[in-house]
Amino acid sequence: MKLKEIIEKLQLKVLTGQDKLQVEVTGGYTSDLLSDVIANSKQGNLWITLQIHQNIIAVAKLKDLAGIIIVNNREPDEETLQKAKEENVPLFSSEEMAFEISGKLYELISS
């Protein structure tokens, strides 16, 4: 499923990466531990997290993730937004909690 479709269905707010919405999403990975995400996420995954600091961008970039969904209506740091723009990493935000977003994404991708 394409990123664009997921954004519409999950009603995500697009913060950066507007031009990368045609990317195919391979799955999701929900975690707030960066070492865990580095070790276990897969290329094309959407990363669901509440971390908002700038170091999440390098992790997404290194693992070729489809993007990052920041949950609980948290606002990313200014440096994070800046880095996401520089590295062209799609960043989204959601009002929902990680549990809900993960469940919905799972439904969408597995159906």
């Binding site: 707030d32 531990l33 960066l34 580095i38 070790a39 997290t49």
Partner: peptide
Amino acid sequence: EMGFGAGMGLPNIKK
């Protein structure tokens, strides 16, 4: 708090 220091770093490198 930043999501580091889970004690996974060196084991992950070795793995």
